[in-house]
Design a binder for these strands. Structure first.
Lengths: 201, 201
DNA sequence: ATTTTTCCATACTGTGGCGTATGGTATTTT
DNA sequence: AAAATACCATACGCCACAGTATGGAAAAAT
């Protein structure tokens, strides 16, 4: 009882007692910072200024923590997607915002990037699969709205999403131009010009 | 002295005694199968039917094994690249072969894919950086030979390489069509049509 | 004011891998 | 043949983390 003394029953900011959701959220943030393999009970507990006695009261094991953390993130991401899907009418603008928004929603993207680096993990894989499918369906629909036939649209969606995934990979290798550089802007322009048809539906 | 009894001084097939290169090669194969984090001394030794007593005679520690394994693979990959660079005259054919060869050289690609999943690792990162730069330079040169101006060619190279990286990522998630399916062929065609200019230089 | 429940600290066991120490055997050298 | 060297087996200590067991204090219920 040293690090997190303070409040007792204040649900504001620093709760007196931790919930399972708090652990899950902390796990999500840890994933964003150091990857899935870094989610270990004891280090995470230390980081939260507490001991694992707390953890094993809320969870049966590490696996279930990961499960909740991943579920939490996936739901958040799905909401994000449908929100941005509803807000923009023109399919072309939706596609463009898909790329331009790479810099936004930092945490979400960092988590996703970390999850990509952990494909192969049995709990992560199904999440990646669902998320990629949702997003590609999103892209594919936009391309169709712009007049592409079914088959071509889905190929174009896969291609476009691959570009995004490749960008994340290069980012993990620190081989991407700075987000606010002109080199970056030029690249984005190039990508948009190459992948997104110009005409309106 | 059970598993690897047999030969005594036969340098054929089953050496009497292991060399550092043997360990490095085994590490490379393990990386391809289970990733970088799976390269652990004792499991690797078991897999080779030997004990770690051998390992620590040839290497000071795990780090130096990884170093040698990575160097070994990187050199192999660099040779591969310059070989395929010399064999094909037409830049357009070089670009096409870049994609068509994704299915070839299985081990090399599996290793590379595993390394991509381990970006962030201090020993892996510089390797990934060099390899990606070499390959993108290769692509960029081909696009320039086809008449693209400098800036556009390098953007196009980055874009093209991202598509490749994204494909590897989807492959790790088991979300790619089978290599010998018509869906795959259609996708490749689509990628080529989208990314590779048609005219001759 | 008890009692119960909630939440956490502490101490323990177990496992898996790293690196070391030491000794043994086969091979080579002299 | 004797000595030296190369290569490997075995046994050990160390550390990090998973999961368990138990007890204790604060909060809530009665």
């Amino acid at each position: 009882m040293t690090a997190r003394a303070a409040a007792k029953t204040t649900p504001k900011n620093e709760r007196a007692t931790l919930s399972a959701a708090d652990w899950a959220q902390a796990a999500v943030e840890l994933i964003a910072e150091k990857g899935v393999q870094a989610v270990a009970i004891e280090p995470l507990a230390r980081r939260m200024g507490i001991t694992k006695g707390s953890f094993y009261w809320h969870f049966p094991n590490r696996e279930s923590l990961l499960e909740q953390a991943l579920q939490r993130w996936e739901e958040h991401d799905a909401r994000n997607l449908s929100k941005s899907l509803g807000e923009i009418d023109q399919p072309r603008d939706r596609l463009i915002s898909f790329f331009r928004r790479v810099g936004k929603e930092k945490l979400t993207h960092e988590v996703y990037s970390a999850l990509c680096a952990a494909a192969g993990h049995p709990q992560v894989e199904p999440v990646l699969e669902r998320v990629a499918n949702r997003r590609m369906a999103h892209l594919s629909a936009a391309f169709r709205e712009m007049g592409m036939p079914e088959g071509q649209a889905s190929n174009q969606a896969r291609l476009t999403y691959s570009v995004y995934l490749g960008y994340l990979q290069l980012q993990r290798q620190h081989q991407t131009p700075n987000l606010s550089s002109e080199e970056f802007d030029a690249y984005i322009e190039h990508v948009i010009a190459t992948l997104i048809p110009s005409g309106t539906p």
